[in-house]
Design a protein around this nucleic acid. Structure first.
Length: 252
DNA sequence: ATTGAGACCTGTCGGC
DNA sequence: TGCCGACAGGTCTCAA
């Protein structure tokens, strides 16, 4: 898509999680994609008009490249690019998002403008994490799922990171910081663990043969804890509506 | 202001 | 084999 123009845009279902803006297709047509970017779990295509195409996969969204004809039941948007590429957005549950923002709307976006730091950037470290958790009465699990604390962690990698850091998901978030917001050892381990599990995930996903589904604790209830010298068994429980997996023995 | 519960929607899977 | 409830990787809104 990068460097290519939108020749045609088919909107087959304009009702994803949010309604499409008026004249969505018309505003896209003729625009060139200057660059593709990402912020947290949002995909952004910066256009020659200055507008930004904002996309989110929700729980079940995906893009594929290739002629979709005949289009599938959940093929909601089809981009026909001047490069010849045909890019189709498919999303059975329709929790995804497709929006077109002016520079002003982008800068003032209610969600984007409040996102926390990118976890793999230098802007995210133990000090930043500790400060964000200072005074939080909620659990570490809920704090890490809060996109304002750190951007882009989802249910799987929160469990994964807490296991690597050996921190209990039920532990109160404020306990990784001192009263003044300085990092305690747990914050140092957790910030490093978050970077580690995400780097590993990106590396694995980049390999064509990757099948997915192999995690340290996620979806492994009843299996042995993989930390060396830990005799624990992975447990699962529900926290704020989401399933958490953890080792009750080594995660404190 | 912070927090947790419920809602949004469809597909899949396990149990009967 | 078929039906039915429970659950799924994410936000958003609302009310306590």
């Amino acid at each position: 898509m990068t460097g290519a123009r939108f020749v045609d845009v088919e909107v087959r279902r304009p009702d994803l999680r949010t309604a499409f803006p008026r004249r969505f297709a018309a505003r896209l047509k003729g625009q060139t994609v200057e660059r593709l970017d990402r912020r947290a779990k949002y995909l952004l295509a910066v256009l020659s008009s200055g507008d930004t195409l904002l996309m989110h996969l929700g729980m079940s969204g995906s893009f594929r490249v290739g002629d979709p004809s005949p289009p599938g039941r959940h093929d909601h948007v089809v981009f026909h690019m001047s490069s010849g590429a045909i890019v189709t957005f498919n999303d059975p549950r329709r929790f995804g998002v497709m929006d077109l923002l002016t520079p002003r709307q982008l800068a003032a976006h209610p969600t984007l403008s409040r996102l926390g730091p990118e976890p793999l950037s230098a802007a995210f470290n133990a000090s930043v994490l500790a400060r964000a958790c200072r005074g939080k009465k909620t659990s570490l699990k809920a704090a890490l799922l809060d996109q304002r604390v750190v951007a882009g962690l989802g249910n799987i990698y929160v469990s994964e990171a807490l296991h690597v850091a050996r921190l209990s998901p039920q532990r109160q978030a404020s306990t990784i910081a001192t009263a003044s917001g300085a990092p305690r050892p747990g914050a140092v381990r957790l910030a490093a663990a978050i970077k580690q599990v995400l780097q590993e995930a990106v590396a694995r996903a980049s390999k064509a043969r990757y099948r997915g589904g192999r995690f340290r604790v996620y979806d492994r209830a009843g299996e042995r804890c993989r930390h060396t010298n830990c005799a624990g068994v992975i447990a699962q429980r529900t926290q704020t509506g989401r399933t958490t997996y953890y080792c009750p023995v080594c995660q404190k």
